[in-house]
């Protein structure tokens, strides 16, 4: 009886709303609420104690949290810039290939096809100080005669993680920048040659402005990716040694499951999301500016 009164559009949209509410809105509201409680998985009744902003105050005054936050930003900056340079180089090289370009493009994407967990395991093995491939190779080549403690030294461990990240995701930049190169009109480049540009100047003043929007799209995607980095780190170092590779999400995961402090972890997560939002907004601004620059019609 009552259903009949609902108009057709409402009726048709209703299932979507119900599903979205059930799988997204409710968990979101619930997790947000729990960040205001001292909820522990081991003490379900603690969910009903409301403590206001106490968790947030604790998070913001927690030195470990800020170190993990800072380390995540550092990792993100180094990884993204490295990936961008390598991806750009790769895309330019592949774009030059006159034969077998399809094959190269496919091969280029291989690293993206592996689960990050497997990448983590593989690099953990490769960087193993005793039996790892990296030390073995370095020693055979005579670069060093001792075993470099890749995953045992704090700084080297972070470097190792960055290498694994870069290996697995440079393709994102390469693919997007290559798409830009393929879509780019040839005439302005030729005009630049005639106007007296060296190959480097042509790249700097003509090609690069075209590619910038594509690079920023890749940056946005990857910044979201790296800001929530968890799997590779979890497998390779689990935040160690002595928390020297602890990132935001490994810290949050540990707080939530190892320490079972769900309320606190949720508060951390909401602060961490701010980081992602800031990066996304930043890159979208850059993207919009770059698009406007080249008068892009997309």
């Amino acid at each position: 009886m009552k259903l009949k009164k609902l108009s057709a559009p409402v009726l048709l949209l209703l299932p979507a709303f119900v599903v979205l509410t059930a799988v997204i809105v409710l968990p979101l509201v619930f997790s947000f609420y729990s960040s205001f409680t001292p909820f522990r998985l081991t003490k379900p009744e603690s969910l009903w104690i409301f403590v206001g902003l106490r968790n947030y105050v604790a998070v913001l005054s927690n030195w470990d949290f800020w170190i993990a936050f800072g380390r995540t930003v550092v990792l993100l900056t180094i990884a993204l810039n490295t990936e961008m340079l390598l991806g750009l180089g790769l895309a330019l090289l592949v774009n030059k290939a006159t034969q077998g370009q399809r094959l190269l493009r496919t091969v280029m994407m291989f690293p993206m096809m592996f689960s990050p967990v497997l990448v983590g395991f593989q690099f953990k093995f490769m960087f193993n100080d005793n039996i790892g491939f990296v030390n073995n190779a370095l020693q055979s080549l005579g670069v060093t005669d001792r075993a470099i403690p890749w995953l045992i030294d704090g700084n080297l461990a972070l470097v190792s993680i960055i290498i694994a990240e870069v290996w697995s995701s440079t393709a994102v930049f390469a693919i997007l920048i290559l798409a830009g190169l393929l879509a780019m009109p040839k005439d302005p480049v030729e005009a630049a040659h005639v106007d007296g540009c060296t190959p480097w100047q042509t790249f700097r003043y003509v090609t690069w402005p075209y590619l910038m929007p594509f690079a920023f799209i890749a940056m946005t995607i990857r910044s979201l990716d790296v800001a929530r980095a968890y799997d590779i780190v979890k497998i390779m170092t689990d935040g160690g040694p002595a928390k020297r590779t602890e990132l935001l999400w490994t810290l949050i995961g540990r707080t939530a499951y190892a320490d079972a402090r769900m309320g606190m972890a949720n508060a951390m997560a909401y602060v961490a999301i701010l980081l992602s939002i800031v990066f996304t907004v930043y890159f979208f601004r850059k993207l919009a500016a770059a698009r406007q620059q080249i008068g892009a019609e997309w």
């Binding site: 009109p185 005439d187 302005p188 030729e190 005009a191 630049a192 005639v194 003043y205 003509v206 402005p209 075209y210 620059q293 080249i294 008068g295």
Partner: peptide
């Protein structure tokens, strides 16, 4: 030391 005018103009859009 030449100049060329292209059919498609080939201006630098940015």
């Amino acid at each position: 030391n030449i100049s060329m005018v292209f059919q498609s103009y080939a201006l630098y859009p940015h």
